[in-house]
Design a protein around this nucleic acid. Structure first.
Lengths: 217, 217
DNA sequence: TTGAACAATAGGGAAATCCCTACTTCGGAA
DNA sequence: TTCCGAAGTAGGGATTTCCCTATTGTTCAA
């Protein structure tokens, strides 16, 4: 088995030392470098490209979120495993959006780390059980947001048709040409949409539609 | 502890028998009924309302998705735990949309089932690790869509400030008042935004911002 | 130190959008 | 049947937005 090249990013040297010791028990893992914050990581990456980065979430100067974003922007093939001491709802979402492959607690046991490394190295994802619990709650929030939107105004077919075109970015004239009516009529349908949704202009109508996921982009 | 009333829905009697046996090892769980498909479930629900339904996803006649939707429509307080033999990407999404509280593999172990029942009964969610892996892949797909987009233009601070206000639905005059400049200046910043993003009007600028997640709603 | 590039400011006129009113059609209720 | 309301159609005039041009201040490198 070829070695998996790893970089550790954490602002506490003691943690890095301990963690490297832990990783050394995997013969196929090679810690090629360390960094104590995001900025340092970016410098290090100019010289050494690892397979996997273990990234602390809370760091001074450039935190895990920003560091992950920037690193992935420059090197999209990087795999990042986010490490955190406590469960932080906010960071979790941001790190996922930044594009990390895995998210785990620092006090995970050695088997968990092994699982995570192998899973991520082979192109998968890994989330520790605590994270899973948090994620599933989040998913529920998403769903319930979708459910509670049921009390939406009722649109006529013509209104729906026009709303879709509006949200694709077409102006009154363009919409009129597409569906063979006068621009003036388009405007009337729009003002009906304004009334039903309680907004005052096209921009706000578009915002409303995206917010309520009436149109999917 | 009061008993948790449970209904099993699965088209295989053998599975139902086995599963009931498993559930009987929890003294606080009471399997009050069974159904072999969605239609039967709906009939059963007219007489018996459980706390939790274990719902097979793949069933003849009325499948888990449809059954869950209809059941929740009539009895919104029901909690549903979806059960599946294999991981099916498609069903997963549909079941989540239908509004199930939990999603697990049938071959989960007894501890997992216990966790799921308790979590769901207390108003939470439960997803087994395999499901979360699938979900995280989904999240990943979202992300990669984000990464592959064109490189975003660089906005000045003023432009970012104005873009945010635009995406909150404010017009030129309102923005001007908020940040103490002339409406004309706001317009100029907007036209810079148009140029940088390649759009032709405010509506399309808002659409662009949502699509590229420059603003978060 | 002197341009050059760029950010921020703003005006005038053209174009698109918004508001109010009005006509036609069609299906269901009195 | 007749009448009413809802949906679809559209025009006139006010408002807002958009495009082109221009000035000022700041930074940075020749």
């Amino acid at each position: 088995m070829e070695t998996i090249k790893v970089i550790l990013v954490d602002d506490h040297k003691i943690f890095r030392d301990g963690f490297r010791l832990l990783l050394q028990s995997f013969p196929y893992v090679d810690v090629i470098c360390e960094a104590s914050n995001g900025l340092e990581l970016l410098k290090v990456l100019e010289v050494n490209i690892p397979d996997i980065i273990f990234m602390d979430v809370n760091m001074p100067h450039v935190d895990g979120v920003e560091a992950s974003k920037r690193a992935l922007e420059k090197y999209p093939d990087l795999k990042i495993i986010a490490l955190t001491t406590f469960l932080d709802d906010d960071y979790l979402e941001q790190m996922l959006m930044a594009g990390v492959e895995a998210y785990m607690l620092k006090n995970a046991d050695i088997e968990e780390f092994e699982k995570a490394i192998l899973k991520v190295y082979s192109g998968g994802n890994y989330f520790s059980a605590e994270i899973v619990a948090l994620l599933s709650d989040k998913l529920n929030i998403l769903r319930s947001r979708k459910v509670q939107q049921m009390e939406l105004p009722v649109f006529t077919d013509r209104e729906k048709e026009i709303l879709e075109l509006i949200c694709k970015g077409f102006g009154n004239k363009e919409i009129a040409e597409k569906i063979f009516i006068s621009p003036k009529t388009v405007e009337k349908h729009k003002s009906s949409l304004f009334q039903k949704t309680g907004v005052l202009n096209t921009v706000n109508l578009v915002i409303f539609s995206f917010k309520h996921q009436i149109v999917n982009f």
